[in-house]
């Protein structure tokens, strides 16, 4: 395949990765932004979403589309509920102390991972995509006879991957609408800006925290449910999303949802492109190098505000 079509293919693969990464990193960013909690267990909520999606499709059976729709709705809801319960049982009791929450979420990470290993097993298991039509893509070339359209062999994307991009876009827009336009968003932003004053105006901060922790985990689980027909569900699959989400959140600016989206697209796309042309390891190395440079030259991230 020529370089042009090859690049387009890599970009589309990168866009799929960026879409899933955007959802996962938005969850992490939301939790840090509102609660100031560094959730080390975030990758495990992602993994739990994928495993539950497998389980749900297995239990529902029937046509893959029906089973997948049920998984898409139920898996994030279940993971969100588990996360909210973890907030209530663990984080609330240590008063969201920054150091202790890191240790507590490391504990959560191992508990979720080992419980999954004990119940789900060590195997990687696929979920059937609800639809998977291969769509050939055209390429354009300028020749002596003007613009020529042709269909290079291998330049294609599946309808499911397009759906992943569309679903992530839709979820991102919905989250923006909730944060910017709704009463709930106003409460979340008030809590984020000044927890004590929010309480002095009737905001039940502890309930808000449980909701946000659940919502953050549900976003990760949604990303995982979307990706599990492309990858496979495995009990160790939470590591990469956690690392990439942290990279994205640091580059975008801690707690900045806008920065998170921009950085997720940047990292996801570059990860996809570099992985296709070179190797996934090089992609991760360059992303971590970028984080190091951001921390040195712009510690607040691309869209974060400087500490007072």
């Amino acid at each position: 395949m020529d370089f042009g079509p090859h690049l387009l293919l890599a970009m589309l693969e990168g866009l799929v990765q960026a879409s899933v990464l955007t959802l996962t990193a938005l969850g992490l960013s939301l939790v840090f932004g509102v609660m100031r909690v560094v959730n080390v267990a975030h990758g495990e909520f992602f993994m739990l979403g994928a495993v539950l999606a497998w389980w749900i499709t297995f239990l529902v059976g029937g046509p893959p589309a029906l089973a997948f729709i049920v998984a898409l709705l139920v898996a994030p809801l279940l993971v969100g509920t588990i996360a909210a319960a973890a907030d209530w049982l663990v984080l609330r009791r240590i008063d969201y102390d920054p150091e202790r929450t890191i240790v507590a979420t490391i504990g959560l990470l191992y508990i979720i991972q080992q419980l999954t290993l004990m119940s789900y097993g060590p195997d990687a298991r696929p979920v059937a995509p609800p639809f998977n039509t291969r769509l050939a893509l055209p390429w354009f070339e300028f020749g002596s006879g003007g613009v020529q359209i042709y269909w290079p062999w291998g330049l294609s994307i599946t309808s499911y991957k397009l759906f992943v991009i569309f679903a992530a876009l839709l979820t991102g827009l919905a989250l923006w609408a909730v944060m910017a336009r709704s009463r709930l968003g106003l409460i979340l932003r008030a809590t984020q800006q000044d927890r004590e004053t929010a309480q002095a105006f009737g905001v039940p901060v502890e309930r808000v925290y449980a909701l946000v922790f659940g919502l953050g985990a549900a976003l990760a689980a949604l990303g995982a449910t979307l990706v599990v027909p492309i990858q496979q569900a495995h009990y160790l699959m939470g590591g990469d999303p956690l690392l990439l989400s942290f990279i994205v959140v640091i580059i975008g600016g801690l707690g900045s949802l806008r920065g998170t989206v921009v950085a997720a697209i940047l990292i996801g796309m570059s990860d996809g492109i570099i992985s296709v042309f070179f190797s996934p390891t090089l992609a991760k190395m360059l992303a971590t190098l970028l984080v190091a440079m951001v921390l040195v030259f712009r510690p607040q991230g691309l869209f974060g505000s400087k500490p007072a």
């Binding site: 009463r183 106003l186 409460i187 008030a190 929010a198 105006f201 009737g202 905001v203």
Partner: peptide
């Protein structure tokens, strides 16, 4: 102001 109004 909306935050104040929502409280009650």
């Amino acid at each position: 102001l909306q935050i104040g109004l929502m409280a009650r």
